[in-house]
Write a protein that binds this DNA or RNA. Structure first.
Length: 202
DNA sequence: TTCACGATTAGCT
DNA sequence: GCTAATCGTGAAG
C-alpha cells in the first residue's frame, strides 16, 4: 500500500472517538492504521493488538500512581500520545482515551506493516521476517521511529496519527489477559485480531 | 539522596 | 526456559 492509497482508503476520526470508555477505544483501534511521518518517509501499520489500562480499579496502569509529570498526559484530553521508556531501553506507545480529566489509555502492542517497510527493516535489523518487525510494543515503536519527542502530541494533528478505514472490514476480536504485568493480572483487557500472524502472542 | 523495579527484547541453553 | 542490557520513575529515608 502506498501513501496515496492510504489517504484514499482511510480517514481521521473525530475527537469523540477517543473520548469514550478505554475498553471501547481499545477494541475499535483494532484494524485502524497508525501512521508516522518521519524524516525517512512515511511509516504505517495496521493495529492488530491492543491493551486497555483503566483509570480505576487497575493497579497495573501507570495512572494508578496518581497524577505525576510522567502520567499527566493520561489525565488530559483524549486522542493524544502517551509515550514512555521501559527498562531504560525501549519505548511504548499508548493512545489516551476517556473524556478530558479522566485517566485511561490504550497500549498499542502490535502492527502489520503497510508503508515504509524498507525503512522499518533498517530500524529493526534483528527482524528476519516481516511478521517480526512490529509484533511487540517496543518493536513497533522502533519500527515506526516513535520516541519521547512524541510524548503528548495530538493524534489528530500529526506527525503521528491514527486513521480508520473507510470501509470497515469485519474483524474477529479475541480477548485475553494482559501480557507482562504482575498487578491486576486477572483482568481480561488485551484485544487482538483472531488468526493474525502479526500479533505478539496467540 | 538512595534504591528497587518495570506494560521488553534478543540471544543462548 | 533463563537472563543480560540499562535507566527513568516513584517511594522511602
Amino acid at each position: 500500500m502506498n501513501a496515496h492509497e492510504l489517504k484514499l482508503s482511510t480517514h481521521l476520526p473525530v475527537r469523540a472517538f477517543y473520548a469514550r470508555p478505554t475498553v471501547e477505544v481499545a477494541k475499535d483501534l483494532l484494524g485502524a492504521v497508525l501512521i508516522n511521518r518521519t524524516d525517512e518517509g512515511l511509516a504505517a501499520g495496521r493495529i492488530v493488538e491492543t491493551e486497555a489500562y483503566l483509570g480505576q480499579a487497575d493497579h497495573a496502569a501507570h495512572s494508578a500512581a496518581g497524577r505525576t509529570p510522567r502520567t499527566q498526559v493520561i489525565y488530559g484530553p483524549p486522542g493524544h500520545a502517551y509515550v514512555y521508556r521501559i527498562y531504560g531501553l525501549h519505548h511504548c506507545l499508548n493512545v489516551v482515551a476517556e473524556p478530558d480529566g479522566q485517566p485511561g489509555c490504550v497500549l498499542i502492542r502490535a502492527l502489520e506493516p503497510l508503508c515504509g517497510i524498507e525503512a522499518m527493516r533498517q530500524r529493526r535489523a534483528t527482524a528476519r521476517k516481516v511478521e517480526d518487525i512490529a509484533s511487540g510494543p517496543a518493536k513497533l515503536t522502533a519500527a515506526m521511529a516513535i520516541q519521547m519527542g512524541l510524548y503528548g502530541t495530538d493524534l489528530l494533528m500529526g506527525p503521528l496519527t491514527v486513521r480508520l478505514f473507510n470501509r470497515a472490514q469485519r474483524i474477529e476480536v479475541r480477548r485475553s489477559k494482559r501480557i507482562g504485568i504482575s498487578r491486576s493480572r486477572e483482568l481480561d483487557l488485551r484485544f487482538f485480531i483472531a488468526h493474525n500472524d502479526f500479533v505478539s502472542r496467540r
